[in-house]
Amino acid sequence: MKTLLSILKDLHPEIDFETHEQLIDKGVLDSFDIVTIAAEIDNEYGVSIPADAIVPENFNSAKALYALIERLEEEE
């Protein structure tokens, strides 16, 4: 989780990712951010996010994103 938060912090230092719940709905993360995050996750965690997992539900909060990573790690 820590690694993930630092990835996010890198992109948008001004956002408190631990509590924010509407990163997509409120337009904090744009498509470039999403792709960067996916690449970072691939780099750091070694899991690749499939394109069909890029939906608001998975990217709206750091928590949801972390859950996605765990789910994907499980499946690997």
Binding site: S31, V35, A38, A39, D42, S48, P50, A51, I54
Partner: peptide, 9 residues
Amino acid sequence: EYLFYPLSI
């Protein structure tokens, strides 16, 4: 959805 995301990841 069908080009940018799949291509970039």
